[in-house]
Nucleic acid binder design. Structure first.
Lengths: 174, 174
DNA sequence: TCCTTCATGTAACCTGTTACATGATTCC
DNA sequence: GGAATCATGTAACAGGTTACATGAAGGA
């Protein structure tokens, strides 16, 4: 369902687009929220067309198909957003690794955490730069709230990794 | 791979256990990090036994099989933890919904966010209580770092939802 | 005796990944 | 003419969910 909704959302914001366009848009605009490849996007668009959520509005060169969101698609998207059934089972590899951390020797765990802190810091910097670029362009900022969330997430993870490394070092020495 | 590692981790901490035990342990100890059902756990344990990561150590009543982690299993777990290839594609429904939020009328979006903030607050309270209970028992706290991470996550999400709701209300009025 | 809990499994289906496959257009 | 990019797809497999299926043991 989420993939469908992401595609409908992108079509709603960007206007008509092909599977190819949507694949790139995914990468460019919501890669920090949801990920999908063309091999999943193309079949999904065909199913969505069969279900009346999108229509093929125009056919271009090289077999290009320009999809547009329908009334029905727009209605479904809104319904899904407002709907309250959004408890999905947690599956967070970072948290799982955190859980298993005590299996390692303290110095190993500390090294691991310092490395992760660095990677989270790098992603944080990238998102902050993206945010600044958007602000400069004065974009209406469709992804503004999600970007803010992404920044908070990266900051939280970086701080957790750093502070947990400190804590393990302290406990190891003390 | 993650499910395997979670099972190996639980076996390492708890000692020998059956698929049934592990299903409950999953629920009880790492539900905020990883989720799995018995229908996935039983076949996985069989495959892991075939791969030599666990062994059936004892057979009890009602066809119960007590699994124990092997040397090889322990080695593989440690290897996986230290290995650096842990970039998995983001797939975060909360963030996706955040991205799509501007599709709604401001009052709708605000109501949605207030509701989410409340649910995150409730989960935060539950994790904090769990943490206090563990501290009281004086447990060595295998899941200590993961629990700390979970608490930070819930707090971050709650604050984001609350502050984004405030922001949308301000923008709507101003 | 009956209910609950213990205990293990399978089958159909959905979501997503990796790799393979093909061909048109445009730009140099 | 050749390379890059545009453009769409399929097949095999891995991971996960839902529902179905079965039966033994223990406690009231």
């Amino acid at each position: 369902m989420s993939l469908r909704m992401a595609l409908l959302g992108l079509l709603a914001v960007s206007g008509p687009a092909s599977g190819y366009d949507l694949t790139k848009l995914f990468e460019k605009s919501i890669s920090h929220a949801w990920h999908a490849r063309h091999s999943q996007i193309y079949p999904e668009l065909n199913k969505m067309a069969a279900d009346g959520l999108v229509t093929v509005q125009e056919e271009g060169p090289r077999g290009r198909k320009g999809y547009a969101i329908t009334e029905e698609g727009s209605r479904r998207l809104r319904e899904w957003l407002v709907g309250t059934e959004h408890f999905r089972p947690v599956r967070d590899e970072g948290a799982l690794r955190a859980f298993l951390l005590p299996m390692l020797e303290p110095p190993e765990a500390v090294a691991l955490l310092r490395g992760e802190a660095e990677r989270y810091g790098a992603k944080l910097a990238a998102l902050e730069e993206f945010d600044r670029a958007k602000a400069r362009e004065g974009k209406s900022g469709f992804g503004r709230y999600a970007l803010d969330l992404g920044i908070r997430q990266m900051r939280m993870m970086r701080d957790w990794a750093e502070e947990t490394a400190d804590r393990i070092e302290r406990d190891d020495r003390g």
